[in-house]
Every structure is written in C-alpha cells, then in structure tokens.
Design a protein around this nucleic acid. Structure first.
Length: 422
DNA sequence: TCTGGGGTCCTAGGACCC
DNA sequence: TCTGGGGTCCTAGGACCC
C-alpha cells in the first residue's frame, strides 16, 4: 500500500505558520514579480480566485475581501519542506519525496502490525504539531489511487486527514466521485480525447478494456489506467541527480540593453552552477534563451536560444558564465524589449566521471575547483550573495524581480529568527 | 501598467546506416 | 522502367507534473 501525503495549500500554510492571525483568512502566494497567484487557501478559492490568475485582473476581489498577499519565498518553503519530510521519515522508512509538498510513503509491512489509517493520522497530527503545516493523506494500492484518496481527505473533514481506499467497493466509489481532470496523469489533451470517446468519469475509464486503452492512448495513459485498477506500476523513486538545471526569471522591467541581459544571464548562470555543484555534478552544455513579453502585441516579438558545449564537463561558475555570455551574444538583437531570460545546463553527469581532454584550454582545473569550493563555503556560511562574480551586476538592477511582499528567511537566516513575545 | 518557474518522459519524424 | 526493408540515433515538440 502507498500513502500520499500532501501539504494543504503548502506555500500559504508556511506563511501562516510565521504570520499570526491568518487562520481562516483568505491568503495567496504570488509568482515572481508578484504577477500571478500560485498558491491560495480554501478561503481565497471560495472568493472565486484561482491558481494562475494574474493579480491585476483580480485586484478588486483582493481589495474588497482584504486578501493577504505574499511574494513567494522558495528558500523558506524548501526549508519547511525539509522539516516536514524529516518528520514523515520518523514514521515510515521508505519515503519518496515527489515534490516540494508531496511524499509517497510505502506502507508495505506496516499493515500487519497496526491500523495504517490510524498510524497515518498520527503522522499528520505530528507534522501539524511540530511545523504547523496541515497535511492530507490518501492510502491505496497504487500511487494514482492514493492521490485521489488524498483529495477526498482534503475535501471532507470527516476523514480526519486520512482517506483509505482498500476495498473494491471504495475504489469504485472513489472513481465515481472524482473528476476525470483531477486524476493524476490526465491533462487537458487526454481529457479532451476521453470526452470524445464519451468517457466522463474515472470509473468509466478504468472499466474500459486494456486493449482499447492500448489502441487509443500512449504509454503514460495506459499506466494511469492500470493504476486506477489498483495495479501499481508508476515509479517515482527520486532520481537524485537532475538531468537538466534551469534558472530563468521575468524581469522587473523590460530592457533592450545587452549590459542588463549580460548581468541577468551571469546571475542565472551562477545560480545554475550552484545547484549543479550542490548535487556534485558537471554539465556538458549551457543554453541561454531570451524572450520578449508575449502579452504585448504592440511590441516586436522575439525569442531565441543558443547552446555552447564544453570540451570538458564543468561546474565552474566562471567558465559557465563565459560560455553563457558567448551564447547570449549569438542571439542578442538590438532594439528589442526583452522581458525574460534563462540559463539551462544539460548533459549532466556525476563529477567523478570527468574525462580529460587533450585540447583543454584550462590548465589549472584543480585550483579552480578549490576556488569554487571556497566560494560555496563562504556563501553557505555568510549568505548566498557574499561572494559573486562582478558580472552579475549590482544590488539594485532594473531587471531584478519585484517581490515587495516577501517574507523573511525565518528558517535559514540566523538574523531572521522569529521573535515570540509571551 | 501589471500576466511564474522548474522539471520529466514519450513520440513522431528526419537523417543516416547497411 | 521497375525503386525495399530494417535499424539506430537525435531532436523538437507535446503532454504532463508540481
């Protein structure tokens, strides 16, 4: 059996944990530049707000109902996520973290010694008590069914945080009552095709013959069909190392200056290189992309990307930045108002597998690796921007994201510890 | 005026090989 | 004049997820 533990309105719940008086209030967390709603509480949903809504379009609802807004602070959410997962691991040996706010817990073997529904309720209560984060848990023989179960647990108080689908009767009932679009693995396009075939509920879909599903759909949809029939076949075991690493941002203000793009690209390249070194890997290629604001039909639209490859795989910030700038120069056009840029590292391999190259132009690799180590250590100890390349620009660049409602780094910055007055 | 960021996997089609 | 069959690899784009 699998349990899927999902944090309720995770980003909002984290903010609520650090800002008193928000219980039962509508709260939203916004994307970078405070552009869109990316997370919201049930109270905010009840006002008609939706995930993805541009803030400026729903400004009147927000003001009328005094919705509390926060800029997203991913560092804070990641730190809280770590704590939540650590608590889950106290209860279950085999936990697969699936996303920042979801974990699959393998309950095989636990059934024999205890009531797993009660056990998961205990886990949820502990997470809530120790972190203030509410979670909902679904238990079922497959991950897809467990996810469906967690939605019931979230929706109906009666489940007391845990919904278990462990009989054929419960499975059929759950599939009858779940929306087809809410099933994990069924997106917009599959939904449309299922509708075309007259299928409107997950139960109808699950009851089709396997041959029919194979004839009409691709592998992932076939897997979903089997999972809905209680046959576990989806593997999520975290591939610890990413195959690509991307950092991209929309700018606070559009710009046509190559100097702005250069400092933005240098910052993103450095962020990518940090993530790369953190997972002890090296990359074989770097891609830079730039785009204009696709919502402005009054401006010339342009988007392009270019890739530079490395003779020797690397995680060296200076080398990656240099290559990223070279790629940028290849695609930069003057007179264009740019809105966004990004850097992607690919061809990622573990850094113990670096192969030497006869034509390598860098002769002091060991020293440069040591320099990177030192910089990483300094930045870990004294804050992420303590040592950077001058190329990343100053503290106040016009292209920097606007996020005026950002919470402090309560969990990762010693100077930002919450002060409690009792 | 203001519209997110970061991933994975699959598949179809082209290029190339014999 | 007739113009095959089987395979691999790569890539772009689609679909999906959070």
């Amino acid at each position: 059996m699998w349990a899927l533990a999902d944090c309720n309105s995770f980003f909002c719940s984290v903010e609520k944990a650090f800002h008193a008086g928000l219980e039962g209030k509508p709260v939203c967390v916004l994307s970078s530049n405070d552009g869109n709603i990316v997370a919201l509480t049930p109270e905010a949903k009840a006002l008609g707000l939706k995930r993805g809504d541009p803030v400026f379009k729903v400004r009147d609802i927000i003001e009328r109902h005094n919705v509390r807004l926060f800029s997203s602070n991913m560092r804070l959410y990641a730190a809280m996520s770590k704590r939540v997962v650590a608590i889950m691991r106290r209860f279950v040996a085999h936990v697969e973290q699936y996303s920042i706010d979801e974990c699959f817990c393998n309950l095989d073997g636990y059934e024999e010694t205890r009531d797993i529904t009660q056990y998961m309720r205990e886990m949820a209560a502990t997470v809530k008590l120790w972190t203030d984060i509410p979670i909902s848990i679904g238990i079922a023989p497959s991950k897809t069914l467990a996810k469906a179960g967690s939605k019931f647990a979230k929706k109906y108080k009666g489940y007391a945080s845990v919904c278990t689908i462990d009989t054929e009767e419960k499975r059929r009932k759950a599939l009858q009552l779940t929306g087809l679009a809410d099933i994990w693995g069924i997106g917009r396009s599959t939904l449309a095709r299922l509708h075309y075939h007259g299928i409107t509920t997950p139960l109808q879909f699950a009851d089709m013959s396997e041959a029919w599903v194979k004839r009409n759909f691709s592998l992932p949809v076939q897997q979903t069909w089997r999972e809905l029939n209680g046959i576990a076949c989806i593997k999520t075991d975290e591939a610890a190392e990413r195959q690509s690493i991307c950092t991209s941002r929309s700018f606070g203000e559009m710009t046509s200056r190559i100097e702005d793009l250069q400092s933005a690209v240098a910052s993103y390249a450095a962020a990518c290189a940090n993530k790369l070194r953190a997972q002890q890997s090296v990359a074989g290629a770097v891609t830079v992309f730039v785009t204009t604001n696709r919502f402005r039909d009054d401006l010339t639209q342009y988007s392009n990307n270019a890739t530079e490859t490395f003779l020797v795989h690397t995680s060296d910030t200076m080398e990656i930045t240099r290559a990223a700038w070279k790629a940028l120069r290849r695609i930069f056009l003057p007179g264009i108002m740019y809105k966004k840029a990004g850097v992607i590292l690919s061809e990622i391999t573990p850094n113990d597998a670096i192969s030497l190259n006869l034509f390598d132009e860098i002769t002091n690799r060991p020293e440069r690796m040591k320099l990177m180590d030192t910089i990483d250590t300094l930045n870990q100890r004294y804050g992420t921007k303590t040592v950077t390349l001058a190329a990343t620009g100053g503290k106040e660049e016009r292209w920097h994201c606007k996020s005026c409602r950002r919470s402090d780094d309560f969990l990762t910055d010693i100077d930002r510890l919450l002060v409690v007055k009792a």
